[in-house]
Amino acid sequence: MIPVSYYLVLSAIVFLTGLVGVLVRRNIIVILLSVELMLNATNINFVAFSHYFNNVAGQVFVFFTLTVAAAEVAVGLAIIIALYRSKSSINVDEFQLLKW
């Protein structure tokens, strides 16, 4: 039986990798991919706890995370396409419409 703390460490590592990826990368598509990493880390946590407490509610919540991830990807990629049309770039440093 694997202790639940192993899963916690694994999901923490994946989450922090996603966090560092959001801060480090300039390509906005890779930033969205890093957000996917963070969402997957929470999913691992949900499923691990659902297994260890033998409660299926954790797995149900993974479905809601999945829904949010799908919605985020659809809207985020549409925003990226709209930004690329106006700026011809996907570098986050060039999106400064709110800065003056």
Binding site: T17, L19, V20, L23, V24, R25, R26, N27, N91, D93
Partner: peptide, 14 residues
């Protein structure tokens, strides 16, 4: 593309 200028800060935070 190169990494963002805040890469050292991000690595430290991580």
């Amino acid at each position: 593309e190169r990494y963002h200028v805040q890469a050292p800060a991000a690595a430290f935070l991580g």
